[in-house]
Amino acid sequence: MENNKQFLTGHEVVVQACIDADATHMFGYPITPGTEILSGWIKKCQDNKDLHFLQTEDEIAAGFTVCGALMAGSKSFTATAGPGTVLMQDAMGMADGMRLPFVTIIAQRGGPSSGTVIYSQQEVNLAIHGGNGEGLRIVYSPSTVEELYVLTRKTFNVAWEYRFPSVLLTDGYLLKTKQDVVLNFVGENVEPKPLVSEHTQKNIRNIYTFEQELMDELTNQKQDFDEMAKEVTEFESYKVESCDELIIAHGIVGAAARDAVDELKKQGKNVGLFRPITLSPFPKDELNKLCKQVKKIMIVESSMGQLKDLVKQNLDTQVEIDGLYKPAVGIETEEIIKLFK
């Protein structure tokens, strides 16, 4: 047995990643399937007096408390899910406007409304575009428990390095999965710093008097975002060399798709996988490069087509699009294999 092998749930891995990222404050309101992130963090606070938490009266309060703590320079975060992700948009929208390094862990569950407490991939749009206006956010979608660790660490780093609100978009399946894992992250933590120092005056705004002022600000933000995208955009291309057909999937469905590709290759079928790891910024260039070589793409997701919409927005290549869209239910490897019979 490897010495550093541990048997952990996704929730436990996320909490460990937040601690290892040097996060110090969590503000949240419990909601399934993300509750164990809050309760796990609270448990850690009992042993480590450098860690702090506040369970607020709702997600709106949690989100704005994160905004305040961030401005004071504390590495703060929240975790939420489903209807909680909707309430969180108010504070996330402020973070969009003020470019706060706001870290949210979203545990997707079924919707609309309370839906199910288990699983979905239906919060992609909310994670990327949930605020009013056109806020720019970095959104990671991990596919395995070990990747959950790495990407949680990265979410904090990119938030503080580039000062864009950053989301770790996961789901109830990945968080509840218990698995033998080896947690490993290469790189240093980005240091937090107060956005306003004690004896200086600085006006970080989320409201403008003139239309032109806001447009100028948003134009600058977009330029910074596009510049950042060159550094941050991530994807996985799996067995895509000279493939004829390409599966596109993200998050945990991406893990099922990877297994499906292995099986399909054994059956002599030339199918590869493209998995965006950052849903925002989206790996557009790589998608288009691959789409030039394939006859067909097959989008597989646990929603009615939120990934499909993202792909279509980014696609400037003519290619046949097919897909399997199963809102709020898991998609097993066997089902993906069947698509290529």
Binding site: T116, T177, K178
Partner: peptide
């Protein structure tokens, strides 16, 4: 080992499941 529980909203009385895989190769999809 990879395991995932599955149950609904009920504290008691609903159906409770657990999917377990014990393998010589890591199974990432639960």
């Amino acid at each position: 080992v990879t395991a995932i529980p599955n149950y609904g909203l009920e504290q008691r009385g609903g159906v409770s499941l657990n999917f377990i895989q014990i393998s010589d190769k890591k199974q990432v999809y639960p």
